[in-house]
Amino acid sequence: MNRKNLLAMSVLFLISLVLPWVIAVYPLGIVIEILIYGIFASSLNLLLGYSGLVSFGHAAFFGIGAYTASIFAQNVSANIFFTLPAAVIVSLLAALIIGFFCTRVSGFYFLMLTLAFAQMIYAIAHQWESLTGGSNGLSGIPVPQLWSGFSFEDQKLLYYLILIVFLLVIFGIRRFIASPVGQTLIGIRENEGRLKAIGYNIRNYKLLAFVIAGGLGGVAGALYSYFNGFVSPHEVYWTVSGHAIIMVIIGGAGTLIGPTLGAGFLIILQSVVSSYTDRWYSIVGLTFIAFVLFAPKGIMGLISLLKLPGKKEVTQNFNVEGEKA
């Protein structure tokens, strides 16, 4: 990291620290949402961007995380040292089971299966009324606590909690991608056949990526339940998976902060557009089509175009695994 980047990061960090004290409650809520969906899109980016696995069912883990945190908060304890690990563990287990099946196939079959499994989780959220409250969802979720007597009643405190988790996740992903395992995943994305020939067990690596992404997706879901205080089957619906894909692609697949930029773009666009028109889905769809056609590397790709020529900026390509180059 060079000096200029360090300076920019410090400034950003300071801004994020004082933010709750300078902006009103409503925009702070939007910032919190961007951070939560930033985590969620970044976790999907581990699959879609870095490993070349196009998952269309990531909402499954968002929902599992949100429901697990809520159910534990209602029935056992609202302590986040309890609800957050519970959400992560259940999401990891679910990702292990779903991933076991999905990583047996490649290409668009993987896409179909992830979509189908997520829809199954959606059906469970809908039908298992005694556990999930059915289509009414779970409401009246207790406010998360750090210890008894210290709860995140104040949205400013919740913001700091979510900011800390967000930073941990982003730096964690950075470390992970730089590690030999992360580099192997990128290798699988670039040329699966070659890595197989060298002797890597492709399936295990894919499963590992799937499980980690699922666990982080669960973290995002748990944070969402803290913020929202209410979960419903809507959190597991295909549109949530779809939005995450759109965020990753619009922000820039295979880049560290692209997915968060994509989340910011989509959430801010939604809050602006929805005050003018109900045609939000058409606008998302058309914006997405425009990005896919004209800026396939997303916002990060556009930013790298602005940089000085000669300075080579790496924005990684994404490609469906198993596809002939």
């Binding site: 196009v54 089509i289 994404f318």
Partner: peptide, 22 residues
């Protein structure tokens, strides 16, 4: 590449979903 085309059909699914509702 095919991923681009699949993503395009996905964008279309959003648009059609909304058009029908409209």
């Amino acid at each position: 590449g095919h991923l681009t085309q699949v993503l395009l059909t996905f964008g279309l699914a959003y648009v059609f979903n909304d058009l029908v509702r409209w």
